[in-house]
Amino acid sequence: MRFYLDMVGRVILGMVDTGRGLGAFALITLGTTISKFGAAKAVIRPQIRNQIFESGLKLLPMIAFLGLALGFVIIGQTVALLTSVGAHEYTGPVMVAVVVRELGPLTTALIVLARVGTATVIELGMSRATGEVEALEALAIDPIHLMVVPRVIGQAVSIFALTIYLILIALVSGYLFIMVQNVPLTPAAYADQITSALTWQDFVLVALKTLAFGAIIAVVTCYQGLAQPLRLEQVAAATSRAVVVGTIGCVMVDAIFILLFLLV
């Protein structure tokens, strides 16, 4: 019994420790972003562009594929359900609630976490393990400024842009499925349903959510790779930890946004 209590205690303490470390790391990153705003532009801006390319542009084909699939699957299920009760005029509102508010941002964030976040932990973990971070410090280069700030900005911008693409593609592919199913819904009526269901809060929600997801993923993955001394053999474990913590972080933030949205 005592063994299990010890184990639970260790897990809880570990979670508290990770939360505390992540909070401190996020604050340091925020402080560096503000205090070094505009510094070393010639080096930092290409890094941000590179991040947008790696975590945004390179993922566009995959996001397009997922958007198509998401549109087909959701409309497929929704149309089947709504037509059976003669309520296919709710197809648009369902798409907005499911794709725009929920699945679009979260799916994009999880894809970026899986594809780019893991690569970030490995890259930074190796840099840490091989002493590159100390070399930067010896050259009076702030590793947070060079390695973390561009990732936070780049990934936040990328997730925002990719989410917009995913939502648009899902909405269009959803209508393609409606056409295939011969549902009596014209493109104009479908568009009308969607625009009527959208409110200004949806636009603010998508923007804030995606920027928050980007920041969370970048901070979590950089923290796991950079903030603690690592040996090469520990990089793999740090990568899986980052995926778990990043997923939990995104889902928790998503839940907070849902609550806020319902309250507003």
Binding site: A42, V43, T130, A135, L139, I141
Partner: peptide, 24 residues
């Protein structure tokens, strides 16, 4: 040891200069 593995020789040497002098 401790050269940045993703940067070329030139970029490794140039990094401190470009960073501190904010130049390309």
């Amino acid at each position: 040891a401790r050269l940045l593995h993703k940067l070329t020789v030139l970029e490794n040497i140039a990094l401190p200069i470009c960073y501190h002098r904010d130049c390309r």
